[in-house]
């Protein structure tokens, strides 16, 4: 009977604490940020032309000499503009970023953007219909994929990459990929 007494006395308290933790976790999380379905999957197959020269065609092998980041962007996306300066900075620090231009208004607009704001990308993939992005499960721009040296997607970041989330989280993820490649 005394066992039950403890249960009756503290059971509700424990339940309350569990509920509190559960709800607090819910408060802090952003429901629009989805986990990618492709985590720990190899990069999907694709063919894409270069944004500057449509005669040049790339395939998924350009993402297999990682670790490499793949950034999904478009000129119609204001957040992409906001993060562009930081991507330039990352590129100047020697971090390879492949750009995937996603359903842009026109190729010329995208090229103008890169010419005026700078081009942080080692390779520029052009995806006017969003076909490649569909294979990656892209649901908005910007998105940044972290791909390891074997061409496996290890992490997806939704939203802009900035100084704060880079130093808080993303740099660590990238460093881990560099370590794994050794």
């Amino acid at each position: 009977m005394s066992k039950f007494r403890w249960l009756i006395l503290f059971g509700p308290l424990v339940l309350f604490a569990a509920l509190l933790i559960f709800l607090l976790k819910g408060l802090g999380s952003d429901p629009t940020e989805l986990d990618s379905a492709l985590i720990n999957e190899p990069v999907p197959q694709f063919e894409a032309s270069d944004i500057y020269d449509t005669q040049v065609v790339y395939d998924q092998s350009v993402l297999k000499d990682g670790p490499v980041l793949m950034n999904v962007w478009a000129t119609w996306c204001p957040t992409c503009r906001a993060e562009h300066e930081f991507l330039n900075e990352l590129a100047s620090n020697g971090i390879p970023i492949v750009g995937l231009n996603y359903k842009d208004d026109s190729r010329q607009k995208a090229v103008n953007w890169l010419n005026t704001l700078g081009d942080p990308y080692v390779i520029n993939l052009f995806d006017p219909k969003g076909k490649i992005a569909f294979e990656f499960g892209v649901y908005g721009a910007p998105e940044t994929y972290f791909i390891d040296h074997k061409g496996v997607i290890r992490y997806r970041h939704v939203g802009d990459v900035n100084e704060r989330n880079w130093s808080n989280k993303l740099q660590g993820i990238y460093q881990q990929l560099v370590e794994d490649a050794k």
Partner: peptide, 8 residues
């Protein structure tokens, strides 16, 4: 669809 966008 699930393979690309998850169970969501």
């Amino acid at each position: 669809m699930v393979a690309r966008y998850g169970d969501f």
